[in-house]
């Protein structure tokens, strides 16, 4: 079966800086993959290039039969890709509820608002507060929740655990496992591979703008030495 998301030979630039030097990755439907790597190696840029936020890019990106290289930014979401940025992007001038309802539905099969509030009870309690009055963890939950509503098939998740307390990280892990059970495809960018090892099926290791390793979660123990060296942990 063809992968849901296929990226081949992806190069990308920020202005004159050449960041991605030929990224290859594929994600099968229902799979959670995790891109590991140190800061500045191109993980976030990979996600932004797949979305089309970064427009200076060459290579191949196909998603569910759609050529994303030819798709404008606002049509990428309609193809079924949802993006949760590292900075979470919660809108201060919108209430929690408005933030949640903001992204238009792109397909049937998204979570209903009731289901989302069951999964994230804190958001329901605070639905009338301004979005940025939430705690960091709640903002991360909201950033994920608003994509889940849209019916997106694939979630691009950029460092969801960054700066959060262990108990919140655990809750995010629970949410990711719930999503996987529902068949969601996830591309996770993480530095915290202990967290990632609990949710991802397969790993990519990124270094200086390319993928330098790929292995399934079962292989993780054998890779620890390499990871410790590459990630510098």
């Amino acid at each position: 079966m063809a992968p849901l998301l296929n990226v081949a030979g992806l190069q990308a630039w920020y202005g004159e800086s050449h960041i991605l030097h030929g990224v290859d990755l594929h994600v099968n439907a229902g799979e959670t993959i995790c891109i590991l790597g140190r800061n500045g190696m191109g993980k976030t840029t990979t996600l932004r290039s797949i979305m089309g936020i970064l427009s200076k890019r060459t290579g191949t990106i196909t998603f569910d039969g759609t050529d994303l290289m030819k798709t404008s930014l606002h049509n990428t979401a309609k193809a079924g890709v949802g993006f949760v940025p590292e900075e979470r992007g919660i809108f201060a001038t919108l209430s929690v509820q408005e933030n949640l309802m903001l992204p238009p539905k792109v397909a049937e099969g998204g979570m209903s608002v009731d289901e989302i509030y069951t999964l994230f009870p804190n958001l329901k309690e605070r639905r009338n507060s301004p979005g940025t009055k939430l705690s960091g963890g709640e903002q991360q939950m909201l950033a994920m929740a608003r994509i889940l509503r849209t019916g997106a098939k694939c979630l691009l998740l950029d460092e969801p655990t960054e700066g959060l307390a262990p108990v919140i990280i655990q809750a995010i892990g629970d949410v990711l496992r719930t999503l996987k059970a529902r068949g969601m495809t996830v591309v996770l960018v993480e530095q915290n591979f202990r967290f990632a090892s609990k949710v991802a099926d397969r790993f990519y290791v990124m270094d200086h703008g390319t993928m330098v390793a790929e292995f399934p979660v079962a292989d993780l123990p054998n890779r620890m030495a390499m990871l410790n060296e590459t990630l510098g942990v």
Partner: peptide
């Protein structure tokens, strides 16, 4: 209104709103 929420959100972060599938242009 919904249209107004797009407008307010785009005032803060147009790129993100467009990545949600809203035709910001």
């Amino acid at each position: 209104t919904k249209l107004g929420s797009y407008l307010r959100a785009s005032t803060e972060n147009p790129v993100l709103v467009q990545s949600f599938g809203v035709n910001v242009p």
